[in-house]
Every structure is written in C-alpha cells, then in structure tokens.
Nucleic acid binder design. Structure first.
Lengths: 151, 151
DNA sequence: TCCATTTTGGTAAATTCTACCAAAAAGGCG
DNA sequence: CGCCTTTTTGGTAGAATTTACCAAAATGGA
C-alpha cells in the first residue's frame, strides 16, 4: 500500500513538515504534480495523520517531565475504560502505552515545574479509581525525542 | 521570553503545523504581518525547533514497538558517552530518556516486526559495552502519542 | 495486441509568503 | 508630564507556492 516513493516522501516530510512541494518533488525525484498528488493521497488515507510544529520543551517553560509506571487494581473494562478516558483528557500526559511487564501502562508527563507535577499526581492521578500503583521516574535528561519512523 | 500571544501561536502550530499564516493570524487574533513576524522569531530563537509530518505507525508498516529499561554496569563518562552516541545513531530508537529509578534509561523503539526487534537487540543493544541489564516491555496498545506541550 | 485504468508532467489561476513601508505603541529619562 | 528613542504594529505589492485541470504516457488484464 505504501510504496517506495511514498516512503521517500514520508521520510522527507518527517524531517521537514513544511518543505514546499517543489523542494519535496526535487529531493524525491518526481514532478511537482505527481509529488503533490501522492502527498495528498497520503494525507487523505491517513498515513500522514497530521503536521505539527515541534516546540523546545525547556525554552517553552516546561522544566519538569517524568515517566510513570502505572498498574491497575483490576482489569475490568469499566476501570480500564475510565483510566484511558481520564488519561486522554489530560494534556500533561503526552504519551500513554499499554505494555507487557510489571506495569500495565507507561506514561510520559510534561509540566512546568515539580509543583505542577505534584498537583498532577494529587489532583488527578491518585483520584482515578482502580489504580494499584504508580511509580514516578523523573526524567533527568532527554537524550532523544524523535517522531520520525525509521523508513 | 515566550509571552501569551506566542503561546497561542505555539498551541495552534502544534495542532496544525501547516496552518497558513492567515488562518493562524485569525485564530490568534492579530494581523498577518505581526503574526508572521512572531512565528519567524520563534523559529529563529529555536523555540520552534522544527516541523514534522506525523505518520501513522501501523499504516506505515511498523507493527512492533517496545519500551526498554536499560541500566549501565558503570557510569564512567566513557561508557555513558558511548551508550548515548550509539542510541543517537539508531533510528529505531525514537526516544531515550535518562531517568531516576531502577533503570538508568527509558527507550522507545519502533520496528517493522518482532524479527526486526530481535535483530535490534542482538546486533545492537546487547553489543553496547557496559550494559548491565535490558528489560523489554512490549507495547500492546498506543493509548496516546502526542507531541503538543500543554500550554 | 488491444482496451481500460491509472499515473504522469505541464500549465494557469488562485492563494500564500515574504520583504518592505510608514504609523502606532511602548518604554526610559529629565 | 513631555520628549525622545526603540519596538511593534498593520498594510501592501511582488515573488513564490498551491491547487485544479488537461492531454499524454505508462501500466496491466484479457
């Protein structure tokens, strides 16, 4: 479904989401119209789900971030659904994955400072019903924060 | 340094990195020229570090992903630097964070299938010197993968 | 080989970007 | 407060880009 030329396009647009169609067409080696149509198709089929500006966390005033390991007390749909719905609502939670291993979920949370993180735990996380355990791993350093799939 | 109007702009560009300057100017309520200049300043100061197309992982053919907990044997600069340099090289590693807690590092790795993940471990991860322990948590479900800071 | 379908490259009008201008706003100082 | 300097603003016009269309080329089934 996604062929080689499409992967080239995706690779480039992951690196520069605002590349003009002309630049793009040249670097992937096709005409501007063919390239434009492919990009459009990738957007409409949902392979490209969107475009985003990447903002430097620290510079933008978000000094604190952490990875949370969360396990649920019980795994009824009721509790799971409520947990998922809660997590989707909170914008501090940038990522949430259901995983194998000791924890049921891995979350990455970004906030302005430790105080805000404390509030996040007290006012939000600890109030979600059915949570057995939450372990906080504070992020000391971001080695890498990428969004580009390794085509 | 980043003021309220800038945060509005950043918020919008995080949601739609390809919004035209005119749309943007209208939604944040300023003239196109003022808006354009602010965006430019945010780019040049590095607050906006770039733009990216967001690609749907599964649709693009990356079926498997995992979160790795990695601890190092020793924490000499020598080993740490080599680990960091190695990780930065591998495009399968989308994210890497140095954290508090049992593990020294949290990594998120994305590959096409389990086979590729196996190769990633054998050919790469297990060959990095100074690694004490690697625990794999396979991602069963992506609840949320966001890039937008919660302004 | 032939026909139907898809994909291509080129073009032109509509839109958008970008660099300028003078005017307005903000800030410092006696 | 009044004056000056500096910064930020809105408007505009030319350059660049996007987007929809065309006929031609390529693809692929029967």
């Amino acid at each position: 479904m996604v062929e080689e030329q499409d992967e080239k396009i995706l690779g480039e647009l992951q690196k520069d989401g605002r590349a003009t169609n002309q630049q793009l067409a040249e670097t992937v080696g096709m005409s501007t119209s063919a390239c434009w149509r492919r990009v459009r198709a990738l957007e409409e089929s949902g392979v490209i789900s969107g475009y985003a500006a990447l903002v430097a966390r620290e510079q933008a005033g978000f000094a604190t971030s952490a990875i949370l390991h969360v396990s649920l007390e019980r795994h009824d749909v009721k509790f799971v659904d409520e947990f998922v719905a809660s997590v989707l609502k909170r914008r501090e939670v940038l990522e949430c994955f259901a995983t194998t291993g000791d924890a049921d979920y891995h979350l990455r949370v970004v906030v302005r400072d430790m105080d805000a993180y404390n509030r996040f735990l007290d006012d939000f996380m600890f109030r979600i019903p059915g949570i057995r355990h939450v372990r906080t791993n504070v992020i000391l350093k971001e080695i890498k924060t990428g969004v580009a799939l390794p085509f």
